[in-house]
Design a binder for these strands. Structure first.
Lengths: 109, 109
DNA sequence: CGTCGGAACCTAGTGTTGCTAAGTACCGGT
DNA sequence: ACCGGTACTTAGCAACACTAGGTTCCGACG
């Protein structure tokens, strides 16, 4: 993974995952492959699982264990009220930063 | 500063500063106040200086010391060829990430 | 003359984050 | 009995922004 992308993901990856969880609960392995299909080709598996542990401990998601036909039980994550709130703040922060940066890009040319 | 913003700045602040330097050389104190005027209200002074040391060591900028009428000599930073290259990569990385995230926002509603 | 404040810069230590690399557990097919 | 895919976990590392101090230089003011 590019070093730049790695650093840029800090602070945004959590929001990305929260956004992925809106409307549709999902489990770790699913989220990882989903991210890869959506272009985040080289996101490390361990990164996603660590992030999920974090947002669980922050109380942003509810967790339910469901048996799988193909392997060990899945941990299914659902966005709860606090998670929605956090996601909302994420969009606010993102909008501000994104706005500032796009302005810089315009001025640049 | 919001925790989210702090984390989100990782990986983008360097690009922001590089962008600020395009076309116009500047020194640390100037960059800090400039950032604050542009809405990054609570950026820590030390953060900017540390970042400047970093991009200097990476060879992205040329440095020239100029005396100041009002205090210790200023270190004026100018974007060099490698800096422009890095900035270009920054815009690519940013475009990709920004595009992905905006798509997530659309899908979210 | 001394000192206070603003301009300008520097640095050691901390917390958060994503990555690396390795491992464990479960199951079907060969 | 073993391999590969599914699914999750963990310890240690590197990069980055922040905290909280500090230093240097100068003019103004009492």
């Amino acid at each position: 993974m590019g070093k730049q992308m790695t650093e840029m993901l800090k602070g945004t990856l959590e929001g990305i995952v929260l956004a992925l969880l809106t409307g549709k609960a999902a489990y770790g392995y699913e989220i990882t492959t989903s991210l890869r299909e959506q272009g985040f080709a080289e996101i490390a598996e361990g990164t996603v699982y660590a992030l999920l542990v974090r947002i669980e401990q922050k109380g942003l998601v509810d967790v339910e264990k469901r048996p799988s036909e193909k392997g060990p039980p899945r941990k299914v994550y659902t966005l709860n009220a606090q998670g929605h709130k956090e996601l909302n703040e994420f969009w606010n922060t993102w909008s501000f930063l994104s706005g500032r940066i796009e302005e810089l890009r315009k001025e640049g040319k």
